[in-house]
């Protein structure tokens, strides 16, 4: 799906992004028992906004089987994905009001596959979104579908070996309906990625495996949209430079906010800051 971008589009996306951030904070506040992965949720809000409001073709029910697929492999950010799906018209107010655990809900902290709701993957075990998404991409190609598969992974997640098995396959076999987005927010659980597992240049690595690579500012709507809609005869890797915890001062670029408990006081501060963006 390709749309023309004008001032109104950007304004609309900015408003959506704000709402997604606010809802992500509210959802994170529900996670008092186990820390919420707030930082990595907020870093991908702009990308999710554009995906669900101008890129992913998943609203045409008649072509449902041939819809585009979005796999959030860094599934600890699922709450932000639901918020984006909510504001993209895919999840209802009622569904969002349900609990984040238990039998009677679909918005688990790590997504659980629900194809009818376009929740495409059961996440939680890092790296696993890549081969699964690649399998979907191959299957859709065999069905002659004009669909694409987008897999979002974290830069910390790139430590997982299976990521590179998939990258090798996709690159060497030119699976050109497969697009990887690396949310490069530079922090993982144990610290800064530069300390845990420093990597000089992800773009160069993907390129050497046969990918078309785009390095973008992961908070710039124009750059995001251009990258997500680029067509190539190769698979695409979008290395999105982002800010972990983007939009909330205490969480921005903070290792402590890879995952943490958002108490009521911090929630208020967060909501206020996002509202004033």
């Amino acid at each position: 799906m390709s749309i023309k971008i004008n001032k109104n589009t950007i304004k609309n996306w900015s408003e959506k992004a704000k709402k997604i951030r606010l809802e992500t904070l509210e959802l994170s506040y529900r996670c008092q028992e186990e820390k919420a992965h707030l930082g990595g949720m907020l870093s991908m809000v702009e990308i999710l906004t554009v995906l669900y409001n101008g890129v992913l073709n998943i609203k045409d029910v008649k072509n449902w089987a041939h819809r585009d697929r979005f796999i959030l492999s860094k599934g600890h950010g699922s709450l932000a994905m639901y918020s984006a799906m909510h504001h993209g018209g895919l999840l209802t107010d009622e569904e969002m009001a349900k609990d984040i655990r238990g039998e009677d809900t679909i918005i688990y902290r790590h997504s659980k596959l629900n194809q009818e709701k376009a929740i495409e993957f059961s996440s939680g075990s890092l790296g696993l979104g890549m081969p699964y998404g690649l399998g979907l991409a191959l299957g859709l190609q065999k069905q002659k579908a004009d669909s694409r598969v987008y897999v979002m992974i974290g830069d910390g997640e790139c430590n997982e070996g299976v990521v590179w098995e998939s990258v090798l396959f996709a690159g060497s076999k030119k699976v050109n309906n497969f697009c990887v987005i690396v949310d490069k927010n530079n922090i993982q659980l144990d610290g800064y990625t530069k300390d845990v597992m420093p990597v000089k240049d992800y773009g160069e690595i993907f390129k050497s495996f046969g990918f078309e690579v785009l390095n973008i500012d992961g908070h710039d709507f124009h750059e995001i949209h251009n990258a997500l809609t680029l067509k190539s005869d190769k698979p695409i890797a979008i290395i999105a430079e982002t800010i972990k915890g983007k939009g909330v001062s205490f969480a921005e670029n903070s290792v402590n906010w890879h995952s943490n408990v958002l108490n009521s006081e911090l929630l208020e501060i967060g909501l206020k800051e996002v509202n004033s963006l």
Partner: peptide, 9 residues
């Protein structure tokens, strides 16, 4: 993983 993706299609 690829087998799983294709199977679910």
């Amino acid at each position: 993983g690829m087998a799983a993706g294709m199977s679910n299609l």
